[in-house]
């Protein structure tokens, strides 16, 4: 994954970059399966690797697929900022619970309740589904609103252009 991400930062051809982005997502999905998050892996593979790539390719078809080379003086401050932030974050990871630690703070509050009781209360074997649709149903409702807003946004941004072009044509024809 790191290699793919590095390639993404180096590559100038945006078409290749979009495909690499899909590969990157797919590798991410594999990592989720390894870490027991099968539902997340499904979604990532379908949405992240599939839909995002299609959206990007669509955009590239409407725009251009070549990128100009970033000037060197612009790169140096970026590298400095990134190294500094990365260093701070690396320092921060030393306080994190180790991978797979069963007594980490995340596992102490609502999670055991979900696992122990959701079978009786909801009756769906997949805990992720019952948490998503029932315990945190409002989150999911909010998510639907986000998608709706995004869809409305996209339509009003791109759709208006075509509407304008049409009215321009009509104006020209009538004028």
């Amino acid at each position: 994954m790191v290699v793919t991400a590095l390639m993404l930062s180096r590559i100038r051809d945006l078409f290749a970059a979009a495909i690499l982005c899909g590969i990157y997502s797919l590798l991410g999905a594999t990592a989720y399966v390894v870490m027991d998050a099968v539902d997340v892996a499904f979604t990532e593979a379908a949405v992240g690797a599939g839909l995002s790539t299609v959206l990007m390719l669509g955009t590239l078809a409407l725009t251009t697929d070549k990128e100009i080379i970033t000037p060197r003086e612009k790169r140096l401050p970026a590298i400095l900022i990134v190294l500094f932030t990365g260093g701070v974050l690396f320092y921060g990871t030393s306080d994190m619970p180790h991978y797979g630690d069963p007594v980490a703070p995340v596992h102490n509050y609502v999670a055991p309740r979900y696992i122990l009781k959701s079978d009786n209360e909801i009756g769906i074997p997949n805990v992720v589904t019952s948490v998503l649709a029932s315990y945190r149903g409002y989150d999911t409702l909010g998510e639907v609103f986000v998608i709706l807003t995004a869809a409305v946004g996209v339509i009003s941004i791109i759709g208006r252009r075509e509407g304008k072009a049409k009215t321009n044509k009509i104006n020209r024809m009538s004028g």
Binding site: M35, V38, P102, P125, N126, V128
Partner: peptide
């Protein structure tokens, strides 16, 4: 979210 030795959260 990973617990060592745990399986996917499907009861």
């Amino acid at each position: 979210g990973k617990v060592a030795g745990g399986s996917a959260p499907i009861l």
